[in-house]
Nucleic acid binder design. Sequence first.
DNA 1: CTGTTAGCGCATTCAG
DNA 2: CTGAATGCGCTAACAG
Lengths: 297, 297
Amino acid sequence: MERMEFAPCGVARGLATGKSRSVALVIPDVADPFFPLLIRGIEEALRRRGYGLFLCDSGQDIQKERANVRMILEQRVDGVILNPTLSDPDGQLDLLDKRAIPYVLLDRILEGRNAGAGVYVDNRKGGRMAADLLLGGGARRLLFINGPEALSVCKLRRLGVEDACRERGLDPASILTGCGDYSVASGERVTDGFLGRGPVPPFDALFAANDRMAIGAMRSLRKHGIPVPEAVEIVGFDDVEIARLVEPPLTTVAQPAFRMGRKSAELLLDLIDGRKPRRRTIIMEPELVLRGTTRPR
Amino acid sequence: MERMEFAPCGVARGLATGKSRSVALVIPDVADPFFPLLIRGIEEALRRRGYGLFLCDSGQDIQKERANVRMILEQRVDGVILNPTLSDPDGQLDLLDKRAIPYVLLDRILEGRNAGAGVYVDNRKGGRMAADLLLGGGARRLLFINGPEALSVCKLRRLGVEDACRERGLDPASILTGCGDYSVASGERVTDGFLGRGPVPPFDALFAANDRMAIGAMRSLRKHGIPVPEAVEIVGFDDVEIARLVEPPLTTVAQPAFRMGRKSAELLLDLIDGRKPRRRTIIMEPELVLRGTTRPR
DNA sequence: CTGTTAGCGCATTCAG
DNA sequence: CTGAATGCGCTAACAG
């Protein structure tokens, strides 16, 4: 069988068994540097058990996301790892439910559904860690640039920020808030908006819900001649590769992307095999990485 | 059929027709920021024609690359887009040939094979453009940090650099040369190596075969207190997202990654459908993007 | 325990 | 032009 170079036909086996030995990953944007490590983790877990990975980048486009789900259903994948686009994907989750295709949600919490499996970091804690670092460093006025608040993770990060305020006896309503779309450009734009109003920045600390927006904010501050971290301290979220390459290197709340990917794939494979995983939702710990956009503590 | 929410079973159709309506993409490293746009281009072309994409990241590991190819063969993809790892993948190309599975090479030129299809930029021209920019700006001594010279693209970029030298009456042997592995760290290490020998840098211009190594070089120069672009001008290759985010933003030779991806997928689909594409190898034009690591011209 | 067979859900073919 | 039969290459159930 080795020498004949025979490879059993997965398609025929798939038809006979009803299992295609493949899973799909649906993400909103491959270009987001948060995904590469995640994908690596997923692939490692899948390969170990002989599964292939269908990649579906919906490009932030709900139309494409629909098309992707349709294609997934046709290709008869055994399961789906879903990191939904901004818009509400519940219609698509219903489709998966109806077809009894197991799925794991990455970085999104389902409020209505009780049966959903998911993997994510403790976003509330992450938000609290970031805000607490800044407030503990003497910040008087915090600007929080959140992602799209329709996403549960964003809501949670905001709650964490508010926790930190309350713990220090501050009114959560006193923090400035902006909202971006996770892109560098949006972080820059939001920050520009707050800086346009006068010569003195109305904030002395800034927390962005991801590193890309934090880097956008850094660009805005540099443009306005405001020194980081001397006049404004900055904390990001994710710890992507760029974070350590910008100048000064970005202090950030790290997500264990590789482990998240691996874990979500393992969880999905357990569901596919009909095993009952002990925990269907897995919450990982964020970790503060101190670099150059905050003053030494 | 709409209302019944019926989806034809791709697996059964695959068995009946011998076509799985899916192709595989084999890349050495999803974390390389050059790939996201490429993947987007590929996905766009594939979705348009109802094909799915199997992602295979070999993680620079030839063992995994083999395992990937095996999995690909089992899953009976209709074609493969291959961006091979450093090591020689010809054994695996033979496998594909034997099985008559069409494939398109990305960014790698086949010297022995006459039938290979491929998509890449004119790397020689790109190398010449970069070196010419630097030499034309008055550089006396050029450091060229190449990628692994086992790769044909790297050989070509070097040839382009030598072309530029000769055109300006310089001896190509006079340029300093280092070799990295495309990572930020390797660019930094190689540059460190040249700067460790004395207080004055032995070069006044630097061309790196990709942006990540160029950024590593920038880090090394900053560490040594050498101003960019005043004392050393730098040009990278690729034009990935980070290039415009570092400070100063990186002058670079841009590759049309999205178009390369789309084109390679279209080419592959033509091969799969048995159409005879007019050109089996497609060479795209690199483009110089002037930013802050070179002085204004 | 080994060898045989039915059938997975389609596309294709051939008969009507 | 519409409708029924065959087989793609496997696995699972079953018989020997």
